[in-house]
Design a protein around this nucleic acid. Structure first.
Lengths: 209, 209
DNA sequence: CTGCAGAAGTGATATCTGTCACGTTGCGCC
DNA sequence: GGCGCAACGTGACAGATATCACTTCTGCAG
């Protein structure tokens, strides 16, 4: 855990010691599901390395809907606040890249909430940020057309991964936006014609974003 | 505040005393705006009587988007967690009916969070519930057509107000669903033909819901 | 009564996007 | 090389809904 002090720098010493004692570090490979929709939550987690995405799954068909990313240093809002009730999760978390997580059993976190001011602030600010992000997502679905949403999605992905090259198939993108491959294909063409992206094999490169 | 003990029954004695000391009861009239999008938050509030609705406003045009209701006993998630940073609010709260609120300055709530286990639980469960509700809203916008969304909206309104008669114009409903009056009008007609509602002057009555 | 305003009903039309059908491209593998 | 497969491109079409134009209804003020 010593390698990640910079990510955890806002936590006080006593809390860091407890984290080290009670938590464990887990390595996951790209594509692995960390939190399954409908499964109970027994742990919370903080991302140390890699990228994790959260998405909502539709009840009926298998279609999913992208919510937001967790970068190193980010905690999972839902599980942070899940508390000892071990409520079933309504979202799915999946590792986008290979990732390293600090996993902490939930029975400790309520005490931390009272005993460590820095933990309290972490939980509050995490929740608040995710809440805002959900609101932003709602804005987009409710008010924007697919072209705007696609650009927003690409920008967010690029920022989360810190790369201009996005290696996703149109099919994958379509799933996350709850659209269809053909629509994404056409919109990508428009973006390319506008000089905003360059189409690659199995991906796109963002130009001057 | 004595009249509202049943709403606050989950709070411990010491906390109730502090609430009485630090908070104040505010009466608002129907239609009054309690929390303006973009304004800083200095207080949190718990609804004691009446109904308050929260909605998101689009940046560009004035269109709004309904999020959820606060019933008596409910707290405002956003302001609960807003904490001493006094962050600007991204949503607007408005009294639907005449209402009575317990307003509490935010400088006290962080201490309560540590000192009163029942307050902690209140905040956590409030936040969690609202988060789930936002997710449900996303589901509806993303996956459902307007007819399903209208039925869902009517059901929620009816439950929140505890009445089968909904006194809203089609124009108002259209705004909250980010649709248009004509579309709501046509869908209402369908609902009426299906025997699910009875159309009234300036409203509808839900039949056997 | 008359006229007006707010609300609602309705047909025509446009746009966005989802879906279907089919063809193309690129790449690995036998 | 030839085959198969996955991704992609594209035209045609359909459905949902936003928008426009116009009418109708109802209650109210003058």
């Amino acid at each position: 855990m010593e390698n990640y002090r910079h990510l955890l720098r806002d936590f006080e010493e006593g809390l860091l010691a407890e984290m080290k004692e009670k938590g464990r570090i887990v390595d996951v490979s790209a594509g692995q599901t960390l939190l399954q929709s409908g499964q109970p939550i027994r742990n919370t987690m903080i991302v140390l390395e890699g990228l994790v995405k959260l998405f909502r799954e539709s009840d009926e068909d298998g279609s999913e809907f992208f919510m937001y990313y967790l970068n190193p240093g980010d905690g999972c809002a839902l599980s942070l606040i899940c508390d000892k009730t071990f409520r079933a999760s309504s979202v799915t978390a999946r590792a986008v890249t290979e990732a390293k997580l600090l996993v902490i059993p939930l029975e400790h976190t309520e005490n931390w909430m009272r005993n460590y001011r820095t933990w309290y602030h972490f939980v509050v600010s995490t929740y608040r940020r995710r809440y805002e992000e959900l609101l932003e997502t709602i804005d987009h679905i409710a008010f924007q057309n697919m072209d705007v949403r696609l650009e927003f999605y690409l920008r967010r992905y690029s920022q989360a991964l810190g790369t201009k090259v996005i290696e996703l198939t149109n099919t994958q993108i379509a799933q996350e936006l709850n659209s269809s491959r053909e629509v994404i294909s056409r919109l990508m063409k428009k973006l390319a014609e506008a000089g905003k992206v360059r189409l690659l094999k199995n991906g796109v490169e963002l130009l001057k974003w």
